Computed example of a mutant assay.
Amino acid sequence: MSEFSRALSVTASGLKAQASRLRHVSENISNADTPGYRRKTVPFEAVRDLQTDVEHVRTGRVTLDRRDLEEVYDPSHPLADETGHYKSSNVDLMVEIADAREAQRSYEANLKMFEQTRSMSASLMDLLRR
């Protein structure tokens, strides 16, 4: 496997991992007002490909945030108990927006690296054709 192929493989794994992270962040944001919803988090894992001896990144198992759900007082809500409270979600929109921005920037950095590697490979091919 050439160094260009290895670099493209690593950046592609980074792109997939960040895309998965963005998908979970968008799920969290869209369910921020859903009663009982727990925030989803996705860890990254480094995995070595034994055939090519290249280390990739992939997403691990999705976990639910175990923080307590916020109690909201709204006696008119259908899920309210006899005291007028119900459990809302534990999604913090500021955290989700920060995570989305970080994932977006990481995705863009991986994409730039992918484009740079492809450009270098094309330039090398042009030089070899001469």
Rank of each mutant, 00 (worst) to 15 (best):
2 S>I: 09
115 E>N: 14
13 S>C: 10
12 A>G: 04
93 L>F: 05
18 Q>N: 08
9 S>Y: 08
39 R>M: 00
117 T>N: 04
122 A>W: 10
25 V>Q: 04
86 Y>W: 04
105 R>V: 07
70 E>W: 13
73 Y>K: 09
61 R>M: 10
8 L>D: 01
66 R>M: 15
39 R>G: 00
127 L>S: 10
48 R>Y: 14
37 Y>W: 05
33 D>K: 06
49 D>L: 09
92 D>W: 03
39 R>C: 00
77 H>M: 10
56 H>D: 00
20 S>A: 15
121 S>W: 03
3 E>S: 09
14 G>T: 01
123 S>N: 15
28 N>K: 05
10 V>L: 05
89 S>D: 05
102 E>A: 14
35 P>T: 02
48 R>D: 13
23 R>H: 08
89 S>K: 03
101 R>S: 15
81 D>T: 01
4 F>A: 10
4 F>N: 09
80 A>G: 05
32 A>V: 05
82 E>N: 09
94 M>G: 13
128 L>H: 05
91 V>E: 01
8 L>C: 01
45 E>L: 06
80 A>D: 02
88 S>F: 15
110 N>L: 07
3 E>C: 03
61 R>L: 12
120 M>S: 12
26 S>F: 00
40 K>P: 04
11 T>Q: 02
114 F>Q: 06
122 A>M: 14
49 D>R: 13
101 R>F: 15
37 Y>A: 04
127 L>H: 07
130 R>W: 12
5 S>Q: 14
75 P>L: 03
